[in-house]
């Protein structure tokens, strides 16, 4: 049994984003990280493998990106992934990215595929579900926990006001969110050394046409300055009479 974890390479979450002529992200000075949800997914995948009594053989990571994403992929290998695949293409939209990963799944043997519920850059919540449908397998969204018991996976998914524990026919795509792992695993020195020798396979893209085109970017309108008050009474009065929100 093998697990595939899909990785997005994203700007650090504290980045003050800027754009070049409102057309593309200004990458100058940007620190890149593994998308936070993907990093949690990888952490949980490794925990599952370690606790499976060798039933889960391999955790593979895949990324769609140009060569500049390799440090991010190496970090995933340093955290503990067994091998990595990079599909050599600038990601354009969720549909085209999912089509690239489809090829990897068709050629591999994965029972569980993890994707983060969204990437912290384009916030689309799309790749996991599109991928599941293209492969023709089940998907569970808003997954906040997975356990491996008696050779099957018990999945915790968030619902309005609570959660459900579910089983799903495998193979399946799980789109995971907060809760799937407590904290992301941090690479140790030994892992960093080993990562250099782990296989990172580069495959050429199939170039499916995207359905979306990102034509430009705008910054949010500057908001009015904060109005300071001295007392609770004054605040409540303004919320009632000026903002009319209570």
């Amino acid at each position: 049994m093998n697990i595939l974890v899909c990785l997005s390479h994203v700007p650090d979450t504290t980045t003050k984003v800027k754009f070049v002529d409102g057309k593309e992200l200004n990458k100058t000075g940007v620190q890149w990280i593994i998308n936070p949800w993907d990093e949690l997914a990888l952490t949980r995948a490794l925990e599952l493998k370690e606790g499976s009594g060798r039933k889960i053989k391999k955790v593979t990571v895949v990324n769609v990106g140009p060569k500049t994403t390799e440090p991010t992929i190496r970090k995933a290998l340093a955290i503990g992934a067994d091998n990595a695949i990079r599909i050599n293409k600038e990601p354009l939209d969720a549909f085209s990215v999912a089509n690239e990963i489809l090829e990897v799944i068709n050629k591999g043997d994965y029972q569980l595929i993890f994707t983060g519920i969204e990437s912290s850059d384009y916030n689309s919540n799309s790749v996991g579900g599109i991928l599941a449908d293209l492969v023709g397998i089940n998907s569970v969204s808003a997954v906040s926990g997975v356990d491996f018991e008696n050779d099957s996976f018990k999945i915790k998914r968030e619902i309005d006001g609570g959660y459900e524990l579910v089983n799903v026919v495998l193979p399946a795509v799980l789109t995971v969110q907060k809760g799937i792992a407590i904290n992301p695993r941090i690479p140790a020195m030994r892992g960093i050394m080993m990562a250099k020798r782990k296989p990172l396979q580069v495959v050429e893209p199939c170039n499916v046409e995207p359905l979306l085109e990102y034509v430009g970017y705008e910054m949010p309108k500057a908001k009015a300055a904060c109005k300071y008050v001295e007392t609770a009474n004054e605040l409540i009065d303004l919320l009632h009479n000026e903002a009319k929100v209570i």
């Binding site: 939209d93 919540n125 799309s126 996991g128 579900g129 309005d160």
Partner: peptide
């Protein structure tokens, strides 16, 4: 809706119908 259910369904629909999806 861009909620738990909508986030689960919409990408699968996007693949089935070859329909571009913009969420949120």
């Amino acid at each position: 809706a861009n909620n738990n259910i909508g986030k689960a369904i919409s990408p699968r629909l996007s693949a089935k119908l070859k329909a571009g999806l913009v969420s949120g």
